[in-house]
Design a protein around this nucleic acid. Structure first.
Lengths: 150, 150
DNA sequence: CGCTAACAGTTGAATTTGTAACTAACAAGG
DNA sequence: CCTTGTTAGTTACAAATTCAACTGTTAGCG
Protein backbone atom coordinates (compact mmCIF):
# COMPACT_ATOMS: atom_id res chain seq x y z
CA UNK A 1 0.00 0.00 0.00
CA UNK A 2 1.47 3.33 -1.03
CA UNK A 3 -0.63 5.45 1.29
CA UNK A 4 -2.14 5.67 4.72
CA UNK A 5 -5.20 3.68 5.56
CA UNK A 6 -7.04 5.84 8.02
CA UNK A 7 -9.66 3.44 9.28
CA UNK A 8 -11.51 3.41 5.98
CA UNK A 9 -12.29 7.11 6.05
CA UNK A 10 -13.24 8.22 2.54
CA UNK A 11 -13.50 11.93 1.78
CA UNK A 12 -16.23 11.23 -0.73
CA UNK A 13 -18.38 9.80 2.05
CA UNK A 14 -17.75 12.67 4.44
CA UNK A 15 -21.18 14.07 5.19
CA UNK A 16 -20.49 17.80 4.75
CA UNK A 17 -18.90 16.97 1.43
CA UNK A 18 -21.81 14.82 0.28
CA UNK A 19 -24.28 17.48 1.31
CA UNK A 20 -22.35 20.03 -0.66
CA UNK A 21 -22.27 17.93 -3.78
CA UNK A 22 -25.97 17.22 -3.59
CA UNK A 23 -26.78 20.86 -2.89
CA UNK A 24 -24.72 22.08 -5.80
CA UNK A 25 -26.04 19.54 -8.26
CA UNK A 26 -29.63 20.09 -7.23
CA UNK A 27 -29.57 23.85 -7.57
CA UNK A 28 -27.67 23.96 -10.83
CA UNK A 29 -30.55 23.46 -13.20
CA UNK A 30 -32.94 25.71 -11.40
CA UNK A 31 -30.30 28.38 -11.13
CA UNK A 32 -30.01 28.36 -14.90
CA UNK A 33 -33.71 29.10 -15.18
CA UNK A 34 -33.96 32.16 -12.95
CA UNK A 35 -30.71 33.43 -14.30
CA UNK A 36 -31.82 33.12 -17.92
CA UNK A 37 -35.35 34.43 -17.41
CA UNK A 38 -34.75 37.25 -14.96
CA UNK A 39 -30.98 37.69 -14.73
CA UNK A 40 -31.17 36.85 -11.04
CA UNK A 41 -28.54 35.59 -8.67
CA UNK A 42 -29.30 33.05 -6.00
CA UNK A 43 -29.68 35.53 -3.18
CA UNK A 44 -31.98 37.62 -5.33
CA UNK A 45 -34.49 34.88 -5.96
CA UNK A 46 -34.35 33.87 -2.34
CA UNK A 47 -35.31 37.38 -1.33
CA UNK A 48 -37.99 37.38 -4.01
CA UNK A 49 -39.38 34.08 -2.72
CA UNK A 50 -39.46 35.21 0.86
CA UNK A 51 -41.32 38.37 -0.02
CA UNK A 52 -43.65 36.42 -2.26
CA UNK A 53 -44.53 33.96 0.45
CA UNK A 54 -44.49 36.01 3.61
CA UNK A 55 -45.33 39.40 2.19
CA UNK A 56 -44.00 42.74 3.33
CA UNK A 57 -41.00 42.46 5.61
CA UNK A 58 -37.62 44.05 6.36
CA UNK A 59 -34.20 43.02 5.13
CA UNK A 60 -33.27 41.91 8.62
CA UNK A 61 -36.25 39.62 8.87
CA UNK A 62 -35.35 37.98 5.58
CA UNK A 63 -31.75 37.63 6.67
CA UNK A 64 -32.81 35.92 9.89
CA UNK A 65 -35.31 33.58 8.30
CA UNK A 66 -33.07 32.54 5.46
CA UNK A 67 -29.75 32.78 7.30
CA UNK A 68 -28.19 35.01 4.68
CA UNK A 69 -25.68 37.69 5.58
CA UNK A 70 -27.03 41.22 5.62
CA UNK A 71 -24.60 42.53 3.01
CA UNK A 72 -25.80 39.93 0.57
CA UNK A 73 -29.38 40.88 1.28
CA UNK A 74 -28.56 44.56 0.90
CA UNK A 75 -27.06 44.05 -2.53
CA UNK A 76 -29.79 41.71 -3.66
CA UNK A 77 -32.43 44.23 -2.60
CA UNK A 78 -30.66 46.94 -4.55
CA UNK A 79 -30.76 44.88 -7.71
CA UNK A 80 -34.36 43.83 -7.24
CA UNK A 81 -35.37 47.42 -6.57
CA UNK A 82 -33.46 48.55 -9.66
CA UNK A 83 -35.42 46.07 -11.75
CA UNK A 84 -38.67 47.26 -10.15
CA UNK A 85 -39.37 43.89 -8.60
CA UNK A 86 -39.81 45.42 -5.17
CA UNK A 87 -40.31 48.77 -3.46
CA UNK A 88 -38.77 50.01 -0.22
CA UNK A 89 -40.61 51.97 2.37
CA UNK A 90 -39.04 53.34 5.51
CA UNK A 91 -40.75 52.45 8.78
CA UNK A 92 -42.01 55.73 10.28
CA UNK A 93 -41.98 54.21 13.76
CA UNK A 94 -38.31 53.17 13.54
CA UNK A 95 -36.49 54.95 10.79
CA UNK A 96 -33.62 52.48 10.71
CA UNK A 97 -35.92 49.84 9.29
CA UNK A 98 -37.16 49.59 5.75
CA UNK A 99 -40.09 47.52 4.62
CA UNK A 100 -39.75 45.63 1.38
CA UNK A 101 -42.66 44.61 -0.78
CA UNK A 102 -43.03 43.08 -4.21
CA UNK A 103 -44.35 45.12 -7.11
CA UNK A 104 -46.76 43.48 -9.58
CA UNK A 105 -43.74 42.69 -11.77
CA UNK A 106 -41.99 41.12 -8.82
CA UNK A 107 -45.06 39.14 -7.94
CA UNK A 108 -45.34 37.87 -11.50
CA UNK A 109 -41.72 36.72 -11.45
CA UNK A 110 -42.27 35.06 -8.10
CA UNK A 111 -45.35 33.21 -9.31
CA UNK A 112 -43.59 32.08 -12.45
CA UNK A 113 -40.51 30.86 -10.61
CA UNK A 114 -42.34 29.19 -7.78
CA UNK A 115 -44.31 27.16 -10.30
CA UNK A 116 -41.05 26.09 -11.92
CA UNK A 117 -39.57 25.33 -8.50
CA UNK A 118 -42.51 23.15 -7.61
CA UNK A 119 -42.16 21.03 -10.72
CA UNK A 120 -38.43 20.92 -10.35
CA UNK A 121 -38.69 19.69 -6.81
CA UNK A 122 -41.14 17.00 -7.84
CA UNK A 123 -38.64 15.79 -10.41
CA UNK A 124 -35.83 15.74 -7.87
CA UNK A 125 -37.91 13.70 -5.47
CA UNK A 126 -39.32 11.37 -8.08
CA UNK A 127 -36.78 8.59 -7.46
CA UNK A 128 -37.80 8.34 -3.80
CA UNK A 129 -40.84 7.19 -1.91
CA UNK A 130 -42.93 9.60 0.10
CA UNK A 131 -41.53 8.21 3.36
CA UNK A 132 -37.97 8.60 2.18
CA UNK A 133 -38.63 12.16 1.07
CA UNK A 134 -40.08 13.07 4.42
CA UNK A 135 -37.24 11.48 6.30
CA UNK A 136 -34.76 13.37 4.14
CA UNK A 137 -36.43 16.64 4.96
CA UNK A 138 -36.46 15.92 8.64
CA UNK A 139 -32.81 15.03 8.64
CA UNK A 140 -31.83 18.08 6.64
CA UNK A 141 -33.73 20.33 8.99
CA UNK A 142 -31.95 18.75 11.90
CA UNK A 143 -28.55 19.14 10.27
CA UNK A 144 -29.28 22.72 9.33
CA UNK A 145 -29.70 23.77 12.95
CA UNK A 146 -26.47 25.39 13.93
CA UNK A 147 -25.17 24.32 17.27
CA UNK A 148 -25.49 27.11 19.82
CA UNK A 149 -22.37 29.03 20.85
CA UNK A 150 -21.44 29.07 24.52
CA UNK B 1 -53.76 37.30 4.23
CA UNK B 2 -51.46 40.00 2.91
CA UNK B 3 -49.62 37.88 0.40
CA UNK B 4 -50.00 35.17 -2.20
CA UNK B 5 -50.64 31.64 -1.19
CA UNK B 6 -48.96 29.70 -3.88
CA UNK B 7 -50.30 26.23 -3.31
CA UNK B 8 -48.48 25.92 -0.03
CA UNK B 9 -45.07 26.24 -1.60
CA UNK B 10 -42.60 27.28 1.09
CA UNK B 11 -39.08 28.33 0.16
CA UNK B 12 -37.78 26.92 3.40
CA UNK B 13 -38.94 23.48 2.31
CA UNK B 14 -37.52 23.74 -1.19
CA UNK B 15 -35.09 20.89 -1.46
CA UNK B 16 -32.11 22.68 -3.03
CA UNK B 17 -32.46 25.34 -0.37
CA UNK B 18 -32.64 22.83 2.47
CA UNK B 19 -29.65 20.98 1.12
CA UNK B 20 -27.74 24.21 1.00
CA UNK B 21 -28.57 25.14 4.55
CA UNK B 22 -27.63 21.73 5.84
CA UNK B 23 -24.41 21.71 3.84
CA UNK B 24 -23.39 25.11 5.07
CA UNK B 25 -24.24 24.46 8.69
CA UNK B 26 -22.53 21.10 8.68
CA UNK B 27 -19.27 22.33 7.21
CA UNK B 28 -19.02 25.50 9.25
CA UNK B 29 -17.48 24.08 12.37
CA UNK B 30 -15.06 21.80 10.62
CA UNK B 31 -14.05 24.58 8.27
CA UNK B 32 -13.13 26.69 11.27
CA UNK B 33 -10.76 23.96 12.41
CA UNK B 34 -8.72 23.44 9.27
CA UNK B 35 -8.70 27.15 8.68
CA UNK B 36 -7.44 27.96 12.16
CA UNK B 37 -4.92 25.13 12.39
CA UNK B 38 -3.50 25.16 8.88
CA UNK B 39 -4.85 28.26 7.17
CA UNK B 40 -6.51 26.05 4.58
CA UNK B 41 -9.43 26.71 2.29
CA UNK B 42 -12.01 24.07 1.51
CA UNK B 43 -10.49 22.99 -1.79
CA UNK B 44 -7.11 22.73 -0.15
CA UNK B 45 -8.14 20.25 2.48
CA UNK B 46 -10.07 18.28 -0.08
CA UNK B 47 -6.93 17.92 -2.14
CA UNK B 48 -5.00 17.05 1.01
CA UNK B 49 -7.52 14.37 1.92
CA UNK B 50 -7.51 12.84 -1.51
CA UNK B 51 -3.75 12.59 -1.54
CA UNK B 52 -3.77 11.28 2.01
CA UNK B 53 -6.25 8.55 1.21
CA UNK B 54 -5.39 7.53 -2.30
CA UNK B 55 -1.72 8.44 -2.35
CA UNK B 56 0.24 9.84 -5.25
CA UNK B 57 -1.93 11.08 -8.07
CA UNK B 58 -2.25 13.90 -10.60
CA UNK B 59 -4.34 17.05 -10.36
CA UNK B 60 -6.63 15.74 -13.06
CA UNK B 61 -7.33 12.55 -11.15
CA UNK B 62 -8.24 14.53 -8.06
CA UNK B 63 -10.46 16.82 -10.09
CA UNK B 64 -12.29 13.84 -11.59
CA UNK B 65 -12.75 11.98 -8.34
CA UNK B 66 -13.87 14.97 -6.35
CA UNK B 67 -15.67 16.83 -9.14
CA UNK B 68 -13.77 20.03 -8.54
CA UNK B 69 -12.87 22.34 -11.38
CA UNK B 70 -9.28 22.15 -12.51
CA UNK B 71 -8.56 25.81 -11.86
CA UNK B 72 -9.53 25.39 -8.25
CA UNK B 73 -7.30 22.36 -7.97
CA UNK B 74 -4.47 24.24 -9.60
CA UNK B 75 -4.65 27.07 -7.09
CA UNK B 76 -5.08 24.74 -4.14
CA UNK B 77 -2.03 22.74 -5.22
CA UNK B 78 0.00 25.92 -5.48
CA UNK B 79 -0.82 26.89 -1.94
CA UNK B 80 -0.24 23.41 -0.55
CA UNK B 81 3.09 23.21 -2.35
CA UNK B 82 4.04 26.64 -1.03
CA UNK B 83 3.40 25.43 2.49
CA UNK B 84 5.42 22.27 1.83
CA UNK B 85 2.44 20.00 2.33
CA UNK B 86 2.98 18.33 -1.01
CA UNK B 87 5.61 17.95 -3.70
CA UNK B 88 5.10 17.91 -7.46
CA UNK B 89 6.92 15.60 -9.81
CA UNK B 90 6.54 15.69 -13.54
CA UNK B 91 5.70 12.40 -15.20
CA UNK B 92 8.68 11.52 -17.42
CA UNK B 93 6.46 9.37 -19.64
CA UNK B 94 3.98 12.19 -20.31
CA UNK B 95 5.42 15.55 -19.47
CA UNK B 96 2.05 17.26 -19.34
CA UNK B 97 1.19 15.38 -16.20
CA UNK B 98 2.44 16.09 -12.74
CA UNK B 99 2.30 13.69 -9.83
CA UNK B 100 1.37 15.10 -6.46
CA UNK B 101 2.41 13.54 -3.19
CA UNK B 102 2.19 14.56 0.42
CA UNK B 103 5.31 15.49 2.36
CA UNK B 104 5.66 14.30 5.96
CA UNK B 105 4.23 17.65 7.04
CA UNK B 106 1.29 17.19 4.69
CA UNK B 107 0.73 13.68 5.94
CA UNK B 108 0.75 14.89 9.53
CA UNK B 109 -1.85 17.53 8.72
CA UNK B 110 -3.95 14.97 6.91
CA UNK B 111 -3.83 12.52 9.79
CA UNK B 112 -4.70 15.23 12.27
CA UNK B 113 -7.61 16.53 10.21
CA UNK B 114 -8.98 13.16 9.23
CA UNK B 115 -9.19 12.22 12.88
CA UNK B 116 -11.08 15.42 13.58
CA UNK B 117 -13.32 14.79 10.58
CA UNK B 118 -14.14 11.30 11.77
CA UNK B 119 -15.22 12.49 15.18
CA UNK B 120 -17.05 15.41 13.70
CA UNK B 121 -19.01 13.19 11.37
CA UNK B 122 -19.93 10.87 14.22
CA UNK B 123 -21.31 13.83 16.11
CA UNK B 124 -23.31 15.00 13.13
CA UNK B 125 -24.84 11.58 12.69
CA UNK B 126 -25.42 10.95 16.37
CA UNK B 127 -29.07 12.05 16.33
CA UNK B 128 -29.94 9.43 13.72
CA UNK B 129 -30.15 5.68 13.59
CA UNK B 130 -27.79 3.65 11.47
CA UNK B 131 -30.57 2.95 8.95
CA UNK B 132 -31.43 6.60 8.66
CA UNK B 133 -27.80 7.54 8.18
CA UNK B 134 -27.40 5.00 5.40
CA UNK B 135 -30.56 6.12 3.67
CA UNK B 136 -29.40 9.73 3.86
CA UNK B 137 -26.13 8.82 2.19
CA UNK B 138 -27.87 6.89 -0.55
CA UNK B 139 -30.22 9.75 -1.26
CA UNK B 140 -27.45 12.32 -1.29
CA UNK B 141 -25.44 10.24 -3.70
CA UNK B 142 -28.44 9.97 -5.95
CA UNK B 143 -29.11 13.70 -5.81
CA UNK B 144 -25.49 14.50 -6.47
CA UNK B 145 -25.52 12.74 -9.82
CA UNK B 146 -25.85 15.46 -12.36
CA UNK B 147 -28.36 14.71 -15.07
CA UNK B 148 -26.60 13.86 -18.31
CA UNK B 149 -26.61 16.43 -21.11
CA UNK B 150 -27.94 15.41 -24.50
C1' DC C 1 -31.07 65.05 29.29
C1' DG C 2 -26.50 63.10 27.83
C1' DC C 3 -23.68 59.37 27.31
C1' DT C 4 -22.80 54.73 25.62
C1' DA C 5 -24.19 50.65 23.43
C1' DA C 6 -26.85 48.31 20.06
C1' DC C 7 -29.15 47.93 15.70
C1' DA C 8 -30.57 48.35 10.40
C1' DG C 9 -28.56 48.96 6.53
C1' DT C 10 -24.72 50.47 3.33
C1' DT C 11 -20.20 50.78 1.43
C1' DG C 12 -15.15 49.79 0.06
C1' DA C 13 -11.36 46.94 -0.08
C1' DA C 14 -9.44 42.39 0.07
C1' DT C 15 -10.42 37.36 -1.03
C1' DT C 16 -12.24 33.97 -3.56
C1' DT C 17 -14.47 32.06 -7.49
C1' DG C 18 -15.80 31.40 -12.35
C1' DT C 19 -14.98 31.83 -17.34
C1' DA C 20 -12.08 31.91 -21.17
C1' DA C 21 -8.15 31.97 -23.21
C1' DC C 22 -3.64 30.42 -23.08
C1' DT C 23 0.93 27.28 -23.03
C1' DA C 24 3.07 23.10 -23.53
C1' DA C 25 2.92 18.35 -24.63
C1' DC C 26 1.20 14.36 -26.88
C1' DA C 27 -1.56 11.63 -30.60
C1' DA C 28 -3.20 10.33 -35.00
C1' DG C 29 -3.70 10.63 -39.89
C1' DG C 30 -2.10 11.97 -44.13
C1' DC D 1 7.44 15.16 -40.71
C1' DC D 2 3.42 18.25 -40.46
C1' DT D 3 -1.09 19.56 -39.74
C1' DT D 4 -5.20 19.14 -36.70
C1' DG D 5 -7.16 17.88 -32.43
C1' DT D 6 -6.93 16.77 -27.61
C1' DT D 7 -5.18 16.87 -22.96
C1' DA D 8 -2.85 18.70 -18.34
C1' DG D 9 -2.25 22.52 -16.17
C1' DT D 10 -1.82 27.72 -15.69
C1' DT D 11 -3.06 32.43 -16.01
C1' DA D 12 -5.80 36.78 -16.68
C1' DC D 13 -9.76 39.19 -16.04
C1' DA D 14 -14.47 39.73 -14.50
C1' DA D 15 -17.93 38.53 -11.16
C1' DA D 16 -19.21 37.39 -6.59
C1' DT D 17 -18.38 36.93 -1.59
C1' DT D 18 -16.44 38.18 2.75
C1' DC D 19 -14.92 41.30 6.32
C1' DA D 20 -14.49 45.52 8.49
C1' DA D 21 -15.65 49.92 8.98
C1' DC D 22 -19.07 53.32 8.36
C1' DT D 23 -23.84 56.22 8.68
C1' DG D 24 -27.88 57.13 10.79
C1' DT D 25 -31.10 55.91 14.30
C1' DT D 26 -33.00 54.07 18.57
C1' DA D 27 -32.65 52.18 23.39
C1' DG D 28 -30.93 51.92 28.08
C1' DC D 29 -29.50 54.05 32.01
C1' DG D 30 -27.06 56.99 35.21
Amino acid sequence: MTHDDNGGFDPREFLPYLLNQAAEASSLEFQAIYKARYGMLRTEWRVLFHLGIYGRMTAKEIADRATIHKTKISRAVQKLAGRRFLVRERDPGDRRREYLELTPAGRAAYLDLSAVASEYEARLMAPFTEEEAQLLRRMLHRLAQRPAEP
